[in-house]
Design a protein around this nucleic acid. Structure first.
Lengths: 196, 196
DNA sequence: GGCGTAGCGGAGGGGTGCCTCGACTTATTC
DNA sequence: GAATAAGTCGAGGCACCCCTCCGCTACGCC
């Protein structure tokens, strides 16, 4: 449903379903008939995007140089998110009552861990970071994109490459605060759903 | 008004004024009589916090080592924001119809530029970043704090110190994307008000 | 053509929030 | 003790939003 994609892209996963219906020139009843829950509509809208991302990610991962693979993975991730607030929301959270989204998120997290580890094993990425730090990065870029979407739509690229300098192994400094555990990370992603 | 402080802290600057009134055991009419606009209430709630921050910032700036001053300025900034979502919102945006907040934001931006420049002139911070990059950082830490507030309340420290490694002169790699201009930065801060 | 059913519209109940305004209560002042 | 001022309450108009349900259309099949 193109209207839903547009609306989620512009207003995030909490977009008004009445607006979506209006935009789609359909009544709310009809919308609810086709997509009983918001999550159904969400998945219908994002499934193509998720697959598209998956394909590009696989390609990025096939790069021989582990650091370059890491970089292009993140570039691809952010490029997909830029201009689509909903997709960033989607990746930032967990929808605990859907097995499908949980699976997608788990895969996503594992993929991140994999590409990170590869870069770490090659000595390119610092050894003291974990998947949670990358998820942090995903969280953090959301408002940057929100703020700059209309004004400086490429600003996230600069932000990302600045962050990449933080992830490089060379001359990294000791971090006092330990990384989040997987459980903490999970809980934090769930918590984002309850924020007003 | 303590209730407003609590509510803004928990739910951000867009918190429901009806809730604030309820929380304060007062009717909405009374609330509106005392604070005709949301911004009035906002300022009443945040003025002490802003001053407190200003004092600590001045102290941080008095540190002799420019890099240490930079670090403790940001640590202080984030510590003030941690646990207070409203303060982060407040610093992230611009409220264009209030001369007072505009002045505060201008001062804030100048202060950031100053402490950054000092670190740059000392050769500690990389020369190719600007105040806009620090504002980016402020934007970016918001959701990290939102997500981790209940789960890993110190996570923002790790995030900050990771970011600091990106700002060090010794680690810098060339950034392809130029920094935002001051005008772009301003517009972006204003734009955050319209996001649903 | 008649009838069943899948699909659609939209009213409407229940909720939240913003903000106003008139009625009411509590000082204060003379 | 009365008149005035200051402060308070909460109903109510308006706008959203979520979600359900019932009446209606239109199409296919006999």
């Amino acid at each position: 449903m193109a209207a839903a994609q547009r609306e989620f892209a512009a207003r995030g996963v909490d977009a008004s379903l009445e607006r979506v219906a209006r935009e789609a020139k359909v009544s709310t009843g009809t919308l609810y008939r086709h997509f009983p829950t918001r999550l159904d509509l969400l998945m219908a809208a994002f499934r193509p995007r998720i697959e598209e991302f998956g394909a590009q990610a696989a390609q990025a991962l096939s790069t021989a140089d582990p650091w370059k693979a890491f970089v292009s993975y993140l570039e691809n991730l952010f490029a997909t998110q830029a201009g689509d607030r909903g997709f960033n929301d989607f990746l930032s959270r967990r929808f605990t009552d859907s097995a499908e989204t949980e699976r997608i998120h788990d895969q996503m997290c594992d993929q991140i861990a994999e590409v990170l580890e590869r870069a770490q094993n090659a000595g390119a990425a610092r050894a003291d970071i974990t998947r949670a730090d990358i998820v942090n990065l995903i969280w953090s870029v959301g408002p940057v994109m929100d703020a700059t979407r209309d004004t400086a739509p490429q600003a996230w690229r600069r932000y990302l490459h600045l962050m990449l300098d933080a992830y490089r192994a060379e001359r990294s400094h000791r971090l006092a605060e330990p990384p989040m555990t997987d459980q903490q990370l999970y809980d934090a992603m769930v918590a984002l759903n309850d924020r007003t």
